[in-house]
Computed example of a mutant assay.
Amino acid sequence: MSRLLSSLRDGKGFDIVLVAVPLAFLLVFSGLPLIYNVVMSFQAVDMFSLGTFNRPWVGFKNYVDVFSLPATWPIMRNTVIFVVCSIAGQFVIGFALALFFARGFPGSSYIRGLFLASWVMPGLVVGAMWNWILAGDFGVLNYALRSLGIISENIFWASNPAWSLWAVIVANIWLGISFNMILLSVGLAAIPRDLYEAAALDGANGLQKFWTITLPMMRSTIGAVISLGLIFTLQQFDLFASITSGGPANSSNVAQYWAWEMSFRQYDFAKGATISVVMIAVVMIASVIYVRSTRHEVRG
């Protein structure tokens, strides 16, 4: 102990502090709640036993019960649709914008910076904004579609079971476009320009350059972007809370919002913890893929 204190006074042990403090923070505020949640998924916990340690151990019963519920598979299907469509939309539009701004034109850097405004906005603010856009009576979207003659009467996007999930998907795509664009722009900037010049001398057109140079050179970056998109999309909660609340009739409900409903509306904390553990496992797999992608990128 005295040796540690003397090294800190000399400034030699400061690197230990820089590592120990964040690790302690992660352990207290992330590690312990994670362990607590995993343990709770194997117990019978309701609103009466939550504050006590009188929790019978039930093993995998909660997992069997959750996957036996009638709502489970429709909600899982919604989750898959939400994740796949959100990631695809964010990536395709973000990649197109990254390629567009990579051309370089007066003011491109400033305009690209403005796109980050959507990413830094809190999810509840974005949800409130899209509530105004998608409102059935006075929404901007309905007004624009009526003006173009596409629809003849208002559509209640957030309360119509046929459109409610897609309403949140569109909002989430808008929210993640700028993040995808910035990361992909960094990957594009790392590609040596002489490769394109050599391809141009060989007579390659723009599409051939994209398939033979851009995509192969961006493989690690694309893997990292998609992995991060999966992680962030599976954690998306605010948009569902502010736009559809998982309704109507679970038509827009997804696993992450269902876990909250199960815990804080139905007060079945054990099943809520079970759903969360399943989601955490998926996020951890995506995190491993992301780490491997960045490792290959660094080696490259």
Rank of each mutant, 00 (worst) to 15 (best):
V186D: 10
P216E: 03
N180Q: 14
G187C: 09
S252G: 06
P248F: 11
V254G: 02
A199W: 09
N205W: 04
I177G: 06
L148C: 11
A162I: 07
W211T: 11
V186A: 15
S178E: 03
F179R: 14
L234D: 01
W260A: 13
A144W: 15
R146M: 15
F210E: 02
S164C: 12
D238H: 00
M129Y: 06
F156I: 10
V254L: 09
F210Q: 01
T221W: 09
L195T: 04
Q208D: 07
E197G: 13
A171M: 05
A204Y: 08
R146V: 07
A249N: 14
T233A: 06
N253G: 05
V126H: 02
A135Q: 09
W163H: 14
I226L: 11
L207F: 15
S227N: 06
A224G: 12
N172G: 01
F179G: 05
S252T: 04
L234E: 01
A224H: 08
L124N: 00
G223M: 03
S251Y: 09
D194S: 15
S152T: 15
V186W: 07
W211S: 09
A200S: 15
F210R: 01
D202P: 11
E261D: 09
N131C: 03
M129P: 08
M181I: 08
A199C: 07
P248C: 11
A198R: 13
N131P: 00
G139Y: 01
V125N: 02
V140E: 09
W130C: 00
G136I: 00
A241V: 01
I226K: 00
A200P: 03
G203A: 12
R193Q: 12
L215K: 04
Q208P: 04
L175N: 06
A199M: 09
T244L: 08
L148T: 07
I226M: 05
P216F: 04
V168W: 01
Y196M: 11
G223S: 03
G206E: 06
I213V: 06
G223E: 02
A167R: 03
W157N: 07
R193E: 04
L230S: 08
S178H: 12
V225W: 04
I169T: 05
I222E: 04
F237T: 07
L183A: 14
I222F: 02
A204G: 08
A249F: 12
M121K: 03
W132E: 08
S152A: 14
S220V: 01
N205C: 11
N205S: 14
W258Y: 15
L183V: 13
G223Y: 01
L195C: 07
P192F: 14
A171Y: 06
P161V: 10
S220A: 13
P122L: 02
G247A: 09
S147A: 15
N172C: 02
L228H: 08
